[in-house]
């Protein structure tokens, strides 16, 4: 609840003077703003549906179909935010031929409002990544890398605040430990940090100082590991003040978004939408 909305609401109620319980409930409904978060992850250059010969995903996916779905929700709801959790690059010949331009151009065209960094986004080196994200003004959020690379500093923000109607949406991101995943030269000037502490700090900033109504984390850590390696489920349990963690990396398909009890006993939603544009995640909130 932001200040403006609160004042607006109080004056309406004061004007209404006498209030009974049922009227109170009615005014609550009247006041609710709806927010729909749409999200993808691990697009992996999959512009077209899988070929019909593919036994698992034949004819599924494709950005033309994805766009239709996104537009449907944009028509249906007033407040829609479109987000992505990294690894937009690598996986089809489009990436080998065009070196990542059409992926970021597509994200700009369809108006992705924030994304984070996946390990494959480093595949053509950090300088190439920076050059293209700068060119296409890709809104990239990330709070757990220590950055000593000028180009990377220019393209990364620790968080982004999106004003959607009267709702203030705070968005940050956490990215993976790349040491086993990437050759050293592709991440020179960047130091990975365990995400829990920097994330909690950023979330507190968004909640307390920036008074966001809702806080969303874009994660490329992965949904779940049996080992003690950090994943989205552990991240949700060890933090607080986060409404949803939208994941990636493990290409996980979930029947429904999961509700996980956080450090303060409240619930954080954890979700991931498969990969390759095969699914569009949709989270619906009343604020």
């Amino acid at each position: 609840m932001n200040r403006k909305k609160f004042i607006q609401l109080s004056s309406t109620l004061v004007a209404g003077s006498l209030l009974h319980a049922n009227e109170l409930e009615a005014s609550e409904i009247w006041n609710k703003e709806e927010l729909v978060i749409l999200h993808t992850n691990d697009f992996h250059s999959r512009f077209e549906p899988f070929p019909s010969t593919h036994k698992t995903w034949g004819n599924k996916g494709g950005i033309s179909q994805l766009k239709t779905l996104i537009d449907q929700f944009r028509k249906q709801y007033k407040n829609v935010v479109l987000l992505d959790s990294g690894d937009v690059w690598q996986g089809t010949a489009y990436f080998n031929v065009f070196k990542g331009h059409p992926e970021l151009e597509w994200m700009k065209n369809v108006n992705y409002q924030a994304t984070t960094i996946g390990n494959h986004d480093f595949d053509l080196g950090i300088d190439h990544l920076c050059e293209l994200r700068k060119k296409y003004e890709t809104p990239t959020v990330l709070c757990n890398y220590q950055i000593n690379h000028k180009g990377f500093q220019e393209i990364i923000k620790p968080y982004k605040i999106i004003q959607s109607g009267t709702i203030k949406v705070g968005i940050t991101g956490v990215a993976i430990d790349f040491h086993d995943l990437l050759p050293q030269k592709s991440y020179e000037g960047i130091i990975y940090q365990d995400p829990i502490e920097p994330l909690q700090r950023t979330v507190n900033e968004l909640r307390l100082n920036q008074s966001c109504d809702i806080v969303i984390v874009l994660s490329h850590l992965g949904y779940k590991y049996e080992s003690d390696k950090i994943d989205d489920l552990k991240l949700a349990q060890h933090t607080y003040g986060i409404d949803a963690i939208l994941g990636g990396h493990t290409h996980t398909f979930l029947e429904k978004p999961k509700s996980i009890k956080n450090k303060k006993g409240k619930y954080t939603i954890v979700n991931q939408a498969g990969w390759a544009g095969l699914q569009l995640g949709k989270l619906h909130f009343h604020i």
């Binding site: 927010l35 779905l69 109504d213 809702i214 409404d243 949803a244 398909f253 979930l254 029947e255 429904k256 978004p257 509700s259 619930y267 939603i269 979700n271 939408a273 498969g274 699914q279 569009l280 995640g281 949709k282 989270l283 619906h284 909130f285 009343h286 604020i287």
Partner: peptide, 11 residues
Amino acid sequence: PKYITESSANL
């Protein structure tokens, strides 16, 4: 924010 389970999904 209130999360609405019924109308949240992976489509």
